[in-house]
Amino acid sequence: MKGLADKSRVQTPPEGDGQYLTFTSGGEMYAIAILGIKEIIEYGGLTVVPMMPDFVRGVINLRGAVVPVIDLAARFGQPNASLSRRSCVVIVEGHSEAEGRQDIGLLVDAVSAVLDIAASDVEPAPNFGARINAEFISGMARMDGKFVIVLNVDRVLSVDDMAVIGTACAPAHPEPA
């Protein structure tokens, strides 16, 4: 796990020049590379799946496919996102070793813009100090004199990792005494 994290930091900035979608979640601005994004839809029609960790808000019906929705703020260990008129679900492609690709929805407070960011403007992620787990950060993009966290979507939405957390959150199955 540690090795993996180190590797992802060494590789930064991985995408180089490219377009990024910026959005806010839990009051913080983030960016993700646009290539992994399939679409952005309005929040609504969510079905809650009980007994799942807080960051799994539920599932939505995306044109006949059942797509899980992840609360990004909760995934970063912050309180659940409060819903507003501007709440959006960003549909991205997640990966799982067993099942290949699976679409996943990211619940965010609001989407802002699509920006071109030059590779030279992306700094490597700090080892510590950020509000979120350093593993989730792919780099820090400089924008109008501010830094925006570029997310490592594969790590944030790793189905394998999230499923493990799901197991941990489900009430433990005690062995019969």
């Binding site: 599932v59 799901g166 489900a170």
Partner: peptide, 11 residues
């Protein structure tokens, strides 16, 4: 429709 691996731990 299967729920997918994310919900694998869900009994």
């Amino acid at each position: 429709k299967p729920l997918g691996k994310l919900f694998g731990a869900l009994h």
